[in-house]
Nucleic acid binder design. Structure first.
Lengths: 253, 253
DNA sequence: CAGTGGTCTAGACCACGTC
DNA sequence: ACGTGGTCTAGACCACTGC
């Protein structure tokens, strides 16, 4: 009943189990204690313990099947939304040196697709170059909805984390995202900014982000230099949030 | 209590809600009924209803926050493990015409990295070319652990779904996967097989798959022609199984 | 057959949004 | 202040694994 500093009981149990996995108390391939044992050990109800191990399962650390004990699958934790959404938050969490710089920025009328996605007739487009360990690795072309444009324009050109800055300035929370990941050839601008040859491979992440209420905030086309970054997924036969999409990925901006 | 054909109650509730979302009863952006209402409507406990909406949340269809009603985020359902793991199952589920052909196949000693990943000293390497709508789109370089090699060698060269064939022949279930997604330039072999120029961009998915028990089955390096396929992710600020990984992705096979 | 995870219930209290 | 989702409990039955 006592939540001890407002962190849920199941979160604290999950933290402790995670520490035990990372520290080798439960090696990869070994079995976790049963739910009943864990419930007794932590003095919690079985349902609470189940919530805790569900967290670990979602992180890809443990697997489970009816009738058998849970198994430790690995030690590398899959990471959070923020790290997929925000380059700065990802880089910081992983201890990288990083930077960013606005190259170009302008208001313009929304294209047809943009007015549908963002629900407005005027947009702010920003071209940013971001670096990792001092090397340019990412070209970001972000289109912001009109209702956040003013706040974005107030940011410094070398703003490290746009996500955090917008939260600080107008309380904006990026809550949901949809992402499409594929590969494209570098165009002339990409090539110049990233210091690669035209036509060389780039990893592209296109995303649309909304607030808690489902209000669209931005769509972005982010291109990483090949070899600088990869996306990692851990999944199980149960369910997972990733899907392939076929063909006809013609470019429409 | 009656599970009616062994499908869980919460699954059937989730199915019905999903249908209502797809059919427009709950349009995108609208609020879902409260848990209490749903519990009454379905004559189920609140916990069961929560399990049902958790399914929809995992599929990216609805979002939730404490204190406010759940919101419908979209109508496109994120898909299952099988579709990320198996080209054939994905292609079939999405109504594509597809094919496959073994180009090369040989047994050889495992490299250092492979013997660690697969836990054996000899491996079977298979080079496959797969097509979508008659066009070659994917070069698959798969390395199988020694204990499945014999079963793989028995498959026909134009086997449509290796996953399904191995389940049929030896009851093998691919249960867990780890995937790394990035972009690379096409090598000479890739270029010839896919009919693109050398150096042109490819979307690469490297994966390692294990059984329910955590036993390694295969590692694979799959390369898609740019524009043929994209990976799609829906996520929320809560948690999700995707993460970026930085640099030094030098090729080690 | 015993043990384990999966499902379900009924009820409680709390934190947060909304009005 | 009220309604909503988030957390937690205690107990029950079932499906499956493994001996």
């Amino acid at each position: 009943m006592d939540r001890g500093g407002m962190v849920a009981r199941y979160e604290r149990i999950a933290d402790e189990l995670r520490r035990e996995i990372l520290s080798g108390v439960h090696p990869v391939g070994s079995q976790l204690p049963s739910e009943a044992e864990l419930a007794e050990r932590y003095g919690a109800a079985r349902g609470t313990v189940r919530q805790a191990v569900a967290v670990l399962a979602a992180e890809g650390l443990v697997g489970s099947r009816q009738g058998a004990r849970r198994i430790v699958l690995g030690r590398v934790r899959s990471q959070s939304f923020a790290e997929l959404h925000s380059f700065a938050q990802w880089a910081r969490a992983n201890g990288h040196r990083f930077g960013g710089q606005v190259i170009e920025q302008c208001r313009r009328p929304a294209s047809g697709a943009e007015s549908v996605k963002l629900g407005c007739e005027e947009v702010l487009e920003v071209l940013r170059l971001r670096s990792l360990e001092g090397e340019p690795v990412l070209v970001e072309r972000t289109v912001y909805a009109e209702w956040v444009a003013a706040a974005v324009e107030k940011l410094p050109a070398d703003c490290e984390s746009v996500t955090e800055a917008l939260y600080a300035s107008i309380g904006l929370v990026f809550a949901y995202g949809e992402h499409l990941i594929d590969a494209v050839a570098a165009g002339a601008v990409d090539a110049r900014l990233l210091g690669v040859r035209r036509g060389s491979p780039l990893l592209r992440q296109r995303r649309t982000t909304t607030t808690h209420e489902g209000r669209p905030v931005e769509t972005s086309d982010d291109r990483y230099r090949a070899g600088s970054v990869a996306f990692s997924i851990r999944n199980s036969i149960g369910a997972n949030p990733l899907a392939r999409q076929a063909g006809d990925l013609r470019f429409e901006r």
